[in-house]
Computed example of a mutant assay.
Amino acid sequence: MNITGLAHNKIALNRMDGYFPPSYPLNYFRLDIKIVENVMSLLLHEYFPYIACATYDNGLQIQFFDHEDVMTALKPYYTVLEAAFLDAPFHPNSHNLSEIELKNAKHWRPNTNGEVIFNCWD
């Protein structure tokens, strides 16, 4: 299985049935992959070239983490967002958000940058 940027000799990908395209209300693609024995998800924003590595707790809570080999392989193609940034507290004034995005953030009250970038708001 080839994914742009993941044709890498250190990363042995195994095909899984875990492809979820963005559909209301999700604003990102989710691809579940298995690297050796670990299952992880790649989250790709629907409109921007932002990508991140994640796992899910209870199928709902996203836990971001950094996978060095995956991040290195994807950097030429995407803006790879690190877990420290995604888990950092969200401050609306620190970002260049549109008026609609600020309105949504005020309504949904996200706690972290990750909750703003990879969201399921309606």
Rank of each mutant, 00 (worst) to 15 (best):
residue 1 M to R: 08
residue 1 M to W: 05
residue 2 N to V: 03
residue 3 I to N: 03
residue 4 T to E: 09
residue 4 T to G: 03
residue 4 T to M: 11
residue 4 T to P: 09
residue 4 T to A: 08
residue 5 G to L: 07
residue 6 L to P: 00
residue 6 L to V: 00
residue 7 A to F: 03
residue 8 H to F: 04
residue 9 N to T: 09
residue 9 N to D: 13
residue 10 K to G: 06
residue 10 K to A: 05
residue 11 I to V: 14
residue 12 A to E: 12
residue 14 N to D: 08
residue 14 N to T: 11
residue 15 R to N: 02
residue 15 R to Y: 06
residue 16 M to T: 14
residue 16 M to H: 07
residue 17 D to E: 13
residue 17 D to W: 04
residue 20 F to D: 02
residue 21 P to T: 09
residue 21 P to C: 06
residue 22 P to W: 09
residue 22 P to G: 05
residue 23 S to R: 14
residue 24 Y to C: 01
residue 25 P to E: 14
residue 26 L to D: 06
residue 27 N to I: 00
residue 28 Y to A: 01
residue 28 Y to H: 13
residue 29 F to S: 02
residue 30 R to L: 02
residue 30 R to G: 04
residue 31 L to E: 09
residue 32 D to Q: 07
residue 33 I to G: 01
residue 34 K to D: 00
residue 35 I to C: 09
residue 36 V to K: 14
residue 37 E to Q: 10
residue 38 N to G: 00
residue 39 V to I: 13
residue 40 M to I: 14
residue 40 M to A: 04
residue 40 M to C: 11
residue 41 S to A: 14
residue 43 L to R: 11
residue 43 L to G: 07
residue 43 L to P: 00
residue 45 H to K: 05
residue 45 H to V: 02
residue 45 H to W: 08
residue 46 E to Q: 15
residue 46 E to P: 08
residue 46 E to A: 03
residue 49 P to H: 07
residue 51 I to K: 02
residue 52 A to C: 08
residue 53 C to N: 11
residue 53 C to T: 15
residue 53 C to K: 05
residue 54 A to I: 01
residue 54 A to Y: 07
residue 55 T to C: 10
residue 55 T to G: 08
residue 58 N to W: 08
residue 58 N to F: 05
residue 59 G to D: 08
residue 59 G to Y: 12
residue 60 L to P: 00
residue 62 I to D: 03
residue 62 I to P: 05
residue 62 I to W: 12
residue 62 I to T: 15
residue 63 Q to M: 10
residue 63 Q to V: 13
residue 64 F to D: 02
residue 66 D to H: 12
residue 69 D to H: 10
residue 69 D to V: 01
residue 70 V to P: 04
residue 70 V to R: 12
residue 71 M to A: 14
residue 71 M to R: 07
residue 77 Y to L: 08
residue 77 Y to F: 15
residue 77 Y to C: 07
residue 77 Y to I: 04
residue 79 T to C: 12
residue 80 V to F: 14
residue 80 V to N: 11
residue 80 V to I: 02
residue 80 V to D: 10
residue 81 L to K: 13
residue 81 L to W: 09
residue 82 E to W: 09
residue 83 A to W: 13
residue 84 A to E: 13
residue 84 A to V: 13
residue 85 F to I: 12
residue 87 D to L: 13
residue 88 A to K: 14
residue 92 P to V: 11
residue 93 N to M: 02
residue 94 S to I: 00
residue 95 H to M: 11
residue 95 H to S: 07
residue 98 S to Q: 06
residue 98 S to T: 06
residue 99 E to A: 12
residue 102 L to P: 01
residue 102 L to W: 06
residue 103 K to C: 03
residue 104 N to W: 14
residue 106 K to S: 13
residue 106 K to E: 15
residue 106 K to Y: 06
residue 107 H to N: 07
residue 107 H to A: 08
residue 109 R to I: 03
residue 110 P to R: 07
residue 111 N to P: 00
residue 111 N to Y: 04
residue 112 T to L: 13
residue 112 T to Y: 06
residue 114 G to S: 10
residue 114 G to H: 10
residue 115 E to A: 04
residue 115 E to N: 01
residue 116 V to P: 01
residue 116 V to C: 07
residue 117 I to G: 05
residue 117 I to D: 02
residue 118 F to S: 05
residue 119 N to G: 01
residue 119 N to H: 10
residue 121 W to K: 05
residue 121 W to T: 05
residue 122 D to F: 02
